[in-house]
Nucleic acid binder design. Structure first.
Lengths: 335, 335
DNA sequence: ACAAGTTTTGTTATCGGTAACATGTTATCG
DNA sequence: CGATAACATGTTACCGATAACAAAACTTGT
């Protein structure tokens, strides 16, 4: 009880050197099979627990991959995290998670904190960062992977998709259905930068197609969710009848908007169309099903895991890898 | 580039000993204010980054709190994690997260892995664990906190609520409304143990009130979500008309069931009532709003953070703390 | 039986901080 | 001015594993 069991203790008990124990526990083939067995046996009996901290210190490899997410409470980001987590299972890396609450300065602080743990790679959601964050990262020789975006000036590798062109698909789809007067429902501020990209994408696509100006409908500050979508429609009141479609920044927002429309007796899609983003479960289960954009959240995570595997195996080549996982329109019953 | 900047380098540049640098960077009052300033300045200029790994190794304090969740992709668990994360911000602890996929043997493996990082406390979701997990934890002198449950034989501290008595509230509420023939919609297997507790709670409460036997409706294997709820109702077919109410294991399941009922032309609540669990956002935004049970997911996290603060400050006393955060019925429009 | 090769094990130094203790340096006061 | 206290800094050893190198033990062929 007084003193934790170390390799030294195991070594003494077996009658070998600590080095042999170290090798045996890491399944080093050069250790005699019988010795290896005995060592594992004794280690177990003594209640030995491997000390990854010491290993990380000595080898200068933490075994950590740092990940920043805007929010953990978001099905899509959670799926990405899960894909990453499962995909990385093989390589023995552990994920060190932090959430930024959609704020770049929070991200900076988080990155600073995460870096003190010597991660072997860092995965950042989004392509917008403070200068200080960029400086911190480039000062280290650390693989950086940006996800959920296709930044113009990437820090390193990228696994993402274009939010703007995803929204263009939605706008085109609506225009084909004769929906010209669009309202965009999303966060007001620019803190949610993916949201801002989507808004910009809608505006650009509408202009491109010669549609009237997009009405921007403020749903509050990020993160916006179901209740914000409902509230936005509620705030809009009768002005909603001026619109052909509500283009929402995400499926939860769309679901909130849809529910509120129904509460107000508006028929969807005959009176107004509603679209979402992200292909969340709620989009396909809701009645009517919500037209949305499918983004392969889980696949982003898995692609990142694959990329990291290559990086750690030294098989990734020198060039930063840019993976566009794309997006696809998922037509539902609300448009 | 060749060699990372250490305290030694900073010390040399300033002309003091590494120890002084160490103290200065940790804001030790005994270091002269001017020296402290200079050291911080130089550390910054040299691009020094504190090495938490080395600190963790030397002090034998990792600064980690390990957390296991059944799933990260679950709004309630995510909220708990967030509450914990935010509440723990002060104490400088970092969370080390792992998810068990609702499997106790996965939990065991995870605990084993997490322990190698020398966490200073461990937070486990649920009160059911393998014997080996229990052994691993009790062999260490490590604070253990079980959450989201009130286990009969806790490993240490507890911050949770009774799943069974929460369901009893739902059953009582339904009985008062004249709903006697209940169907419980949840995961089939017993891997999701909180789900199993809820099922048991429903059965016990129905028996207590003298209601007819509860019909168990299999929604597939854990984690069950919206689509499972919809599928379960779909599978049920006409048999659904034999029931007065669908008692669902969670709000997402309830929402799926509700949507499917509507697709099939069933009126909720006049034809059948639907209830959920967890007071997820979808319950309050959905039209009609879903009757559910509010569990203070975020508060669980914050309570755990508060408890950990006390523990680390040595102010927690000797006895394990058992916190029942309770639960409350949130009547909606589906019952 | 011995050299040369192969397999297995051991020795030493070290990663970057910091606890505990020792020492130096500057105020304070009779 | 010298003694004592208060403050500021330095020294030494060490946390537990492991890379790099060294050496021992065992095979094998002649």
């Amino acid at each position: 009880m007084s003193h934790r069991v170390t390799m030294r203790d195991v070594a003494r008990a077996v009658g070998v050197s600590p080095m042999t124990v170290s090798r045996a526990l890491r399944d080093d083939e050069t250790v005699n099979a019988k010795t290896r067995h005995k060592i594992r046996q004794v280690a177990n009996d003594l209640g030995y627990v491997y000390d990854t901290t010491a290993q990380a210190f000595r080898t200068q490899k933490s075994g950590f991959v740092a990940v920043t997410l805007p929010s953990i409470n978001n099905a899509n980001f959670a799926e990405t995290f899960r894909g990453l987590s499962e995909g990385l299972g093989q390589s023995g890396m552990q994920l060190l998670l932090g959430s930024t609450n959609y704020q770049v300065d929070k991200e900076e602080e988080l990155v600073r904190q995460l870096l003190t743990r010597n991660p072997e790679a860092i995965v950042l959601t989004g392509g917008h960062h403070t200068d200080e964050t960029r400086a911190l990262l480039s000062a280290r020789n650390l693989p950086v992977i940006e996800i959920w975006d296709l930044p113009a000036a990437p820090l390193g590798h990228v696994v993402g998709f274009s939010n703007a062109s995803a929204m263009a698909k939605v706008v085109t789809h609506l225009a084909e259905k004769g929906r010209y007067r669009l309202g965009f429902v999303g966060a007001s501020e620019n803190t949610d930068l993916r949201g801002a990209s989507r808004r910009a994408g809608v505006i650009a696509a509408a202009a491109e197609l010669g549609l009237p100006d997009v009405t921007i409908i403020d749903a509050g500050s990020a993160p916006v969710s179901m209740r914000h979508g409902a509230q936005a429609v509620s705030d809009l009141g009768d002005a909603v009848s001026e619109l052909d479609a509500l283009v929402c920044v995400s499926d939860p927002v769309a679901f909130g908007a849809l529910s509120e429309c129904r509460r107000r007796g508006l028929k969807v899609p005959s009176d107004i169309a509603v679209t979402g983003f992200g292909n969340f479960e709620v989009a396909s289960v809701s009645d009517p099903r919500i037209t949305t954009v499918g983004v392969t959240a889980r696949e982003i995570g898995m692609q990142v895991a694959a990329l990291l595997d290559d990086l750690f195996a030294g098989e990734a080549g020198d060039l930063p890898r840019i993976v566009d996982v794309g997006s696809r329109l998922v037509p539902g019953e609300t448009s």
